[in-house]
Design a protein around this nucleic acid. Sequence first.
DNA 1: TGAAAATATGAATAATCGTTCATATGTTCA
DNA 2: TGAACATATGAACGATTATTCATATTTTCA
Lengths: 119, 119
Amino acid sequence: MQMNSIDVCESCEIHKNLIAKAMEEMPAEETLYDMAELFKVFGDTTRIRILYALFSSEMCVCDIADLLNMTQSAISHQLKVLKQARLVKFRKEGKSVYYSLDDDHIKAILYQGISHVSE
Amino acid sequence: MQMNSIDVCESCEIHKNLIAKAMEEMPAEETLYDMAELFKVFGDTTRIRILYALFSSEMCVCDIADLLNMTQSAISHQLKVLKQARLVKFRKEGKSVYYSLDDDHIKAILYQGISHVSE
DNA sequence: TGAAAATATGAATAATCGTTCATATGTTCA
DNA sequence: TGAACATATGAACGATTATTCATATTTTCA
Protein backbone atom coordinates (compact mmCIF):
# COMPACT_ATOMS: atom_id res chain seq x y z
CA MET A 1 0.00 0.00 0.00
CA GLN A 2 1.23 3.47 -0.81
CA MET A 3 0.84 5.42 2.43
CA ASN A 4 0.84 9.16 2.03
CA SER A 5 -0.30 12.26 3.86
CA ILE A 6 -3.74 12.28 2.31
CA ASP A 7 -4.83 8.72 2.95
CA VAL A 8 -4.99 7.91 6.62
CA CYS A 9 -4.63 4.52 8.28
CA GLU A 10 -7.27 2.97 10.52
CA SER A 11 -5.29 3.71 13.67
CA CYS A 12 -5.26 7.38 12.72
CA GLU A 13 -9.02 7.35 12.47
CA ILE A 14 -9.17 5.88 15.95
CA HIS A 15 -6.58 8.28 17.35
CA LYS A 16 -8.03 11.43 15.83
CA ASN A 17 -8.68 13.05 19.21
CA LEU A 18 -5.15 12.23 20.29
CA ILE A 19 -3.80 13.89 17.16
CA ALA A 20 -6.01 16.92 17.67
CA LYS A 21 -4.65 17.38 21.18
CA ALA A 22 -1.04 17.10 20.03
CA MET A 23 -1.78 19.63 17.31
CA GLU A 24 -2.88 22.21 19.86
CA GLU A 25 0.33 21.97 21.84
CA MET A 26 2.55 22.23 18.77
CA PRO A 27 4.59 25.46 18.85
CA ALA A 28 4.27 27.99 16.04
CA GLU A 29 6.11 27.29 12.81
CA GLU A 30 8.48 30.19 13.46
CA THR A 31 9.33 28.93 16.94
CA LEU A 32 10.06 25.45 15.59
CA TYR A 33 12.31 26.93 12.93
CA ASP A 34 14.20 29.07 15.45
CA MET A 35 14.66 26.12 17.79
CA ALA A 36 16.02 23.95 15.00
CA GLU A 37 18.40 26.73 13.97
CA LEU A 38 19.60 27.06 17.56
CA PHE A 39 20.26 23.35 18.07
CA LYS A 40 21.90 23.14 14.67
CA VAL A 41 24.51 25.57 15.96
CA PHE A 42 25.26 23.22 18.87
CA GLY A 43 25.47 20.30 16.46
CA ASP A 44 29.10 20.74 15.50
CA THR A 45 32.17 19.79 17.52
CA THR A 46 34.14 22.85 16.48
CA ARG A 47 31.45 25.21 17.71
CA ILE A 48 30.98 23.26 20.94
CA ARG A 49 34.71 23.42 21.54
CA ILE A 50 34.69 27.17 20.94
CA LEU A 51 31.90 27.58 23.49
CA TYR A 52 33.79 25.46 26.02
CA ALA A 53 36.90 27.53 25.37
CA LEU A 54 34.92 30.61 26.36
CA PHE A 55 33.59 28.99 29.54
CA SER A 56 36.43 30.21 31.73
CA SER A 57 37.09 33.58 30.11
CA GLU A 58 36.90 35.69 26.99
CA MET A 59 39.37 34.94 24.21
CA CYS A 60 40.56 36.56 21.04
CA VAL A 61 40.23 34.76 17.71
CA CYS A 62 43.81 33.59 17.51
CA ASP A 63 43.70 32.30 21.10
CA ILE A 64 40.83 30.04 20.08
CA ALA A 65 42.52 29.01 16.84
CA ASP A 66 45.64 28.13 18.79
CA LEU A 67 43.73 26.26 21.48
CA LEU A 68 41.74 24.18 18.99
CA ASN A 69 44.64 23.84 16.58
CA MET A 70 42.63 25.15 13.67
CA THR A 71 43.07 27.93 11.13
CA GLN A 72 42.07 31.49 11.97
CA SER A 73 39.69 31.47 9.04
CA ALA A 74 37.80 28.39 10.14
CA ILE A 75 37.37 29.83 13.64
CA SER A 76 36.29 33.19 12.31
CA HIS A 77 33.63 31.57 10.13
CA GLN A 78 32.27 29.60 13.08
CA LEU A 79 32.33 32.63 15.36
CA LYS A 80 30.12 34.33 12.82
CA VAL A 81 27.61 31.50 13.13
CA LEU A 82 27.76 31.67 16.92
CA LYS A 83 27.34 35.44 16.78
CA GLN A 84 24.28 35.20 14.54
CA ALA A 85 22.74 32.72 16.97
CA ARG A 86 23.45 35.17 19.81
CA LEU A 87 25.55 32.62 21.62
CA VAL A 88 28.66 34.80 21.78
CA LYS A 89 29.26 38.51 22.06
CA PHE A 90 32.45 40.40 21.34
CA ARG A 91 34.41 43.52 22.11
CA LYS A 92 37.19 45.02 20.05
CA GLU A 93 40.49 46.05 21.58
CA GLY A 94 43.10 47.33 19.19
CA LYS A 95 43.76 44.76 16.51
CA SER A 96 42.13 41.98 18.49
CA VAL A 97 38.51 40.97 18.91
CA TYR A 98 37.60 39.30 22.18
CA TYR A 99 34.71 36.86 22.20
CA SER A 100 32.76 35.65 25.21
CA LEU A 101 29.59 33.71 25.98
CA ASP A 102 26.47 35.82 25.56
CA ASP A 103 24.78 34.49 28.73
CA ASP A 104 24.70 31.58 31.16
CA HIS A 105 21.81 30.10 29.26
CA ILE A 106 24.30 28.56 26.89
CA LYS A 107 26.07 26.71 29.64
CA ALA A 108 22.74 25.27 30.75
CA ILE A 109 22.05 23.88 27.28
CA LEU A 110 25.52 22.36 27.04
CA TYR A 111 25.16 20.80 30.49
CA GLN A 112 21.86 19.24 29.46
CA GLY A 113 23.62 17.77 26.44
CA ILE A 114 26.60 16.45 28.36
CA SER A 115 24.39 14.87 31.00
CA HIS A 116 22.37 13.09 28.34
CA VAL A 117 25.36 11.59 26.54
CA SER A 118 27.11 10.47 29.71
CA GLU A 119 24.86 7.68 30.93
CA MET B 1 49.99 37.48 6.72
CA GLN B 2 48.94 33.87 6.42
CA MET B 3 47.70 32.87 9.87
CA ASN B 4 47.61 29.17 10.53
CA SER B 5 47.60 26.77 13.43
CA ILE B 6 51.37 26.54 13.66
CA ASP B 7 52.29 30.21 13.77
CA VAL B 8 50.78 31.94 16.76
CA CYS B 9 49.93 35.61 17.15
CA GLU B 10 51.40 37.83 19.84
CA SER B 11 48.18 37.80 21.85
CA CYS B 12 48.35 34.02 22.00
CA GLU B 13 51.81 34.23 23.48
CA ILE B 14 50.47 36.56 26.13
CA HIS B 15 47.39 34.43 26.79
CA LYS B 16 49.17 31.09 26.96
CA ASN B 17 48.13 30.44 30.56
CA LEU B 18 44.55 31.28 29.67
CA ILE B 19 44.65 28.79 26.81
CA ALA B 20 46.19 26.15 29.04
CA LYS B 21 43.37 26.54 31.56
CA ALA B 22 40.70 26.26 28.87
CA MET B 23 42.43 23.17 27.53
CA GLU B 24 42.09 21.41 30.88
CA GLU B 25 38.36 21.95 31.06
CA MET B 26 37.75 20.77 27.50
CA PRO B 27 35.71 17.55 27.49
CA ALA B 28 37.09 14.40 25.89
CA GLU B 29 36.94 14.12 22.13
CA GLU B 30 34.35 11.35 22.36
CA THR B 31 32.12 13.42 24.62
CA LEU B 32 32.29 16.37 22.24
CA TYR B 33 31.38 14.10 19.35
CA ASP B 34 28.44 12.58 21.20
CA MET B 35 27.16 15.99 22.23
CA ALA B 36 27.33 17.29 18.66
CA GLU B 37 25.50 14.20 17.43
CA LEU B 38 22.81 14.72 20.04
CA PHE B 39 22.22 18.39 19.23
CA LYS B 40 22.29 17.61 15.52
CA VAL B 41 19.23 15.45 16.08
CA PHE B 42 17.42 18.40 17.63
CA GLY B 43 18.50 20.60 14.74
CA ASP B 44 15.66 19.68 12.38
CA THR B 45 12.08 20.94 12.49
CA THR B 46 10.60 17.60 11.49
CA ARG B 47 12.28 15.82 14.38
CA ILE B 48 11.39 18.57 16.84
CA ARG B 49 7.78 18.32 15.71
CA ILE B 50 7.83 14.56 16.18
CA LEU B 51 9.15 15.00 19.71
CA TYR B 52 6.45 17.57 20.48
CA ALA B 53 3.85 15.23 19.08
CA LEU B 54 4.98 12.64 21.60
CA PHE B 55 4.83 15.10 24.51
CA SER B 56 1.26 14.32 25.41
CA SER B 57 1.16 10.60 24.61
CA GLU B 58 2.61 7.78 22.57
CA MET B 59 1.70 7.62 18.90
CA CYS B 60 1.95 5.16 16.05
CA VAL B 61 3.85 6.07 12.90
CA CYS B 62 0.82 6.92 10.82
CA ASP B 63 -0.59 9.10 13.60
CA ILE B 64 2.57 11.18 13.43
CA ALA B 65 2.57 11.23 9.63
CA ASP B 66 -1.03 12.39 9.67
CA LEU B 67 -0.41 15.02 12.34
CA LEU B 68 2.62 16.48 10.59
CA ASN B 69 1.14 16.03 7.13
CA MET B 70 4.15 14.13 5.87
CA THR B 71 4.71 10.76 4.23
CA GLN B 72 4.99 7.62 6.33
CA SER B 73 8.43 7.00 4.87
CA ALA B 74 9.82 10.38 5.86
CA ILE B 75 8.54 9.94 9.41
CA SER B 76 9.89 6.41 9.63
CA HIS B 77 13.33 7.56 8.54
CA GLN B 78 13.36 10.31 11.16
CA LEU B 79 12.09 7.99 13.88
CA LYS B 80 15.09 5.83 13.15
CA VAL B 81 17.37 8.80 13.78
CA LEU B 82 15.53 9.60 17.02
CA LYS B 83 15.72 5.96 18.06
CA GLN B 84 19.47 5.80 17.46
CA ALA B 85 19.92 8.91 19.59
CA ARG B 86 17.87 7.23 22.32
CA LEU B 87 15.33 10.05 22.29
CA VAL B 88 12.35 7.80 21.60
CA LYS B 89 11.45 4.26 22.51
CA PHE B 90 8.81 2.06 20.96
CA ARG B 91 6.52 -0.86 21.55
CA LYS B 92 4.88 -3.04 18.93
CA GLU B 93 1.20 -3.85 19.02
CA GLY B 94 -0.17 -5.80 16.13
CA LYS B 95 0.64 -4.10 12.89
CA SER B 96 1.37 -0.82 14.58
CA VAL B 97 4.46 0.51 16.32
CA TYR B 98 3.91 3.02 19.08
CA TYR B 99 6.62 5.56 19.76
CA SER B 100 7.09 7.61 22.90
CA LEU B 101 9.70 9.88 24.47
CA ASP B 102 12.52 7.94 26.07
CA ASP B 103 12.72 10.13 29.19
CA ASP B 104 11.87 13.57 30.54
CA HIS B 105 15.39 14.70 29.85
CA ILE B 106 14.33 15.41 26.30
CA LYS B 107 11.61 17.78 27.37
CA ALA B 108 14.17 19.67 29.45
CA ILE B 109 16.44 20.15 26.45
CA LEU B 110 13.55 21.35 24.28
CA TYR B 111 12.43 23.77 27.00
CA GLN B 112 15.93 25.21 27.19
CA GLY B 113 15.81 25.73 23.45
CA ILE B 114 12.38 27.30 23.41
CA SER B 115 13.26 29.66 26.23
CA HIS B 116 16.38 30.82 24.41
CA VAL B 117 14.62 31.59 21.13
CA SER B 118 11.70 33.39 22.78
CA GLU B 119 13.33 36.55 24.13
C1' DT C 1 -2.86 -19.33 2.28
C1' DG C 2 -3.21 -14.81 0.40
C1' DA C 3 -4.45 -10.08 0.41
C1' DA C 4 -4.29 -5.84 2.82
C1' DA C 5 -2.34 -2.93 6.39
C1' DA C 6 1.51 -0.73 8.95
C1' DT C 7 6.14 0.03 9.06
C1' DA C 8 11.04 -0.20 7.57
C1' DT C 9 14.67 0.40 4.34
C1' DG C 10 17.91 1.19 0.31
C1' DA C 11 19.08 4.13 -3.51
C1' DA C 12 18.87 8.59 -5.59
C1' DT C 13 18.63 13.51 -5.62
C1' DA C 14 18.76 18.24 -4.14
C1' DA C 15 20.12 21.15 -0.59
C1' DT C 16 22.96 22.46 3.23
C1' DC C 17 27.33 22.74 5.63
C1' DG C 18 32.42 23.01 7.26
C1' DT C 19 36.82 23.85 5.81
C1' DT C 20 40.32 25.78 2.78
C1' DC C 21 42.40 29.23 0.03
C1' DA C 22 42.93 33.74 -1.42
C1' DT C 23 42.12 38.19 -0.36
C1' DA C 24 39.91 42.24 1.81
C1' DT C 25 39.26 45.19 5.92
C1' DG C 26 40.74 47.58 9.89
C1' DT C 27 44.29 48.74 13.41
C1' DT C 28 48.87 49.80 15.28
C1' DC C 29 53.32 51.67 15.18
C1' DA C 30 57.72 53.03 13.38
C1' DT D 1 52.50 56.80 4.97
C1' DG D 2 53.52 52.01 4.81
C1' DA D 3 54.44 47.57 6.70
C1' DA D 4 52.89 44.06 9.80
C1' DC D 5 49.26 42.20 12.52
C1' DA D 6 44.49 40.46 13.61
C1' DT D 7 40.27 39.42 11.83
C1' DA D 8 36.59 38.96 8.31
C1' DT D 9 34.76 37.29 4.05
C1' DG D 10 33.63 35.27 -0.61
C1' DA D 11 34.13 31.40 -3.66
C1' DA D 12 34.91 26.57 -4.19
C1' DC D 13 35.02 21.77 -2.88
C1' DG D 14 33.85 17.59 -0.58
C1' DA D 15 30.92 15.66 2.82
C1' DT D 16 26.62 15.16 5.07
C1' DT D 17 21.57 15.15 5.16
C1' DA D 18 16.26 15.21 4.44
C1' DT D 19 12.97 13.75 1.45
C1' DT D 20 11.08 10.87 -2.26
C1' DC D 21 10.21 6.68 -4.63
C1' DA D 22 10.09 1.90 -4.94
C1' DT D 23 10.07 -2.08 -2.50
C1' DA D 24 10.84 -5.28 1.44
C1' DT D 25 9.22 -6.99 5.97
C1' DT D 26 5.92 -8.21 9.35
C1' DT D 27 1.35 -8.86 11.12
C1' DT D 28 -3.60 -9.57 10.85
C1' DC D 29 -7.66 -11.58 9.25
C1' DA D 30 -10.87 -13.48 5.99
